[in-house]
Structures are given as C-alpha cells and as structure tokens.
Simulated scan of single mutants.
Amino acid sequence: MIIDYRYHIASLVAVFIALGIGILVGSAVLGNEVIVKRQQQLADRLEIQLEELRQKNEAVQARANNLEIDNNIQKQFEKQVLPPLVAGKLTGKRLAIVETNSYGFRDDLVNTLTMAGATVQSVTTVLDGFDLTGRKDRLVSELNLKEADDNALVKQLAAETARGILTGEKQALLNTLAQAELLKLSGDYGVPVDGVIFIGGSQDRSLVKTEILDYPMIDYFLQQKLPVFGVEETDVTYSYMKDYQKKRVSTVDNVETPPGQLALVLAIAGKPGHYGVKPTAKQLLPPIDTATGGVGNVKPGQSVSGNSRT
C-alpha cells in the first residue's frame, strides 16, 4: 500500500511539472487567461489530492510501525512463556530427527525439545532427495544393491536408512551414503528412541519425493510401533502436511514458531493431532491442562485418531 501511494505521489509531481510548463507556454504564446485559469484550478485540485495522499501515506506508515512493535512484543511474549509451558513435558524421551528437504532447521527447535526434557539422539539429513545422478553405479556396487530404476533404489535406500537410524545395523550403509554426500549424519545411531520427527516441506519441486523417500522411512518406524511426527515451516512453497497425514501421524505446520514448537512438544507428550496455521491443521494448539500443567498420555504406536495401529 505504501508503494502505491509513492507511485501516485510521483505521478502527481510529474503532472504538476507538466502543468507548470503548460501554464508558461499558454501565457507566453496564447495569452489566453481562460486556459491559464483552468490550468490553475486543475493544479489546485491536484495539490489537494497530493496532500490527502501524503496524509494517508503517513497514516499507513504509522500503522505499519505500530504493527511491527506489536509483533516484536508478541515474539518476546512467546519466547518468555514457552519455557515454562514445555518444562518437564518430555522428561526421559529420546528422539530422532529426520530431515528430508535438505534445508536445515533452526537450532531453537532442538533447544525447545531439550527444555522439555527430551534428548535428541540423532539428526539425519537426506541431501538432494537421494539424487542418484552420477552415483548410481558406485552405490549399487559398494552396497550390493539389486539393479533397479532410480525410484526403486531411492525407496530401498530410504528404508535401509531408517533401519540404520534405529538399529545401528546399517552403519556401513549410512557412512557410504554420507561419503557420497547423500546423507548428513549427527548424533548416536542404533540407540533406542521413543519417537521420530520428520522435517519436510520444500521450496524446490524437484525435492518433493514423499512417496519414494519419506513414506518408506515412516512405514518402517510405524512398523516398529514408534510414533512419528511430521513437521514443516510456515513459508514452504510445497507443503508435506497432506502427505504426512495420509500416514495418520501427527503434524505441525509452523514448527519454526513458539506456538508450533509447543504444539510439537504436547503432541509428543500425548496430544496427537494436526496443529498449526494452514488449512490442513485442525487447530493451533492441543488442549493445555492449566490446572496441572500436564497432558494426557498416548501409548507408543497410537494413531492420531486414538486407535491403535495394526
């Protein structure tokens, strides 16, 4: 809106200049007082409009400044109330994080999980969506994989990666994929965990491979009766929420924000559901027990609808 006002002001200034030239030319050449008078009336009206636009522009700028102040206050409030709201909610929980969009995520997510009492055992980042270009033959040879098309191999690598995260039996495979720059590994593998957080959502259409990358990994963890939580940031171009929800796992679509991180903590603590600000979310936050500060418990492997998985 401010940009539009500036455009109009610039246009009006140009009109003023044109009128000034017109008045000079009309006076010198034509000497017609009627023309000069009409031009002066038009200039007066334009001057009034210019003043009105200037006042509106100032009002909009003041409004924008106030909104920025309110937003900063809101952010400070959220940061201050988040620690006591999550404190102790995940005491003793051990979690694994799997990132399938290659972008990385903010440190404050791990900080929030830690504040809640959880331990992040490992963070596994799939790079470039397991793009096998120029790597396929080498990987097939080194990992003794069956010859197959790229999609089938990505599915196989995804499932084996999930197995390696949980059991540690595929450490050689994980290391080979890391050396091929298809995985980034951090933490301890083969350590029992109580849940797995998938960080999805993409800015690049070519990286959206939920069916061949995310699904095989999610399916493996669900088969092991582990709860899975699918999350993404608010401003991703391609959302994974609908895809994750097809697997009946809890989702949070604004995990970079304090409300999103609170929703994730409460979901892990036993309030499954679909939370956030996008159309795929059912509500912003799970119900919070203000009397005790606690949340209900859901047995590992229980779906977001409350029914046990088979």
Rank of each mutant, 00 (worst) to 15 (best):
V154C: 05
L139R: 09
A172L: 08
A178N: 11
E169F: 10
F130V: 08
G168D: 08
N175E: 11
Q171S: 15
R163I: 11
T167N: 09
D137T: 12
L153S: 00
D137H: 04
L132Q: 11
N144I: 13
K146I: 13
Q179D: 12
A158V: 01
I165C: 12
L132F: 07
T167L: 08
R138F: 09
K146C: 10
K136G: 03
T176M: 03
L177I: 00
R135Q: 14
A148D: 10
A178Y: 03
R163H: 14
A148P: 05
D149K: 12
A162T: 04
E169C: 01
N151A: 08
A158G: 02
V154A: 00
L177C: 02
T161C: 03
N151F: 07
T167R: 13
N175M: 06
A159P: 01
L157G: 00
E142W: 04
S141K: 15
K170Y: 03
T176K: 12
K136A: 05
N175D: 10
R138Y: 10
L174E: 04
A159F: 10
I165K: 04
L143Y: 00
T176Q: 13
L139N: 08
A148Q: 09
N175Q: 15
R135D: 08
N144G: 11
E181Q: 15
A172V: 08
A162H: 05
R138K: 14
K170T: 05
L145N: 05
K155N: 07
K155R: 14
L139Y: 06
T176E: 13
L145W: 05
E181H: 13
A172N: 14
V154Q: 02
L132H: 03
T161A: 02
T133D: 03
E142F: 05
A172E: 15
R163E: 13
A180L: 01
E181V: 05
K155G: 10
G164Y: 01
L143C: 09
A148V: 05
L173R: 02
R135W: 04
A159H: 14
R138D: 12
E142S: 13
T176S: 09
D131I: 07
Q171D: 14
L157P: 01
A180S: 05
T133F: 06
A148F: 02
D149Q: 09
L157C: 00
F130N: 02
L143A: 03
D150C: 03
L132V: 10
T133S: 12
L153H: 05
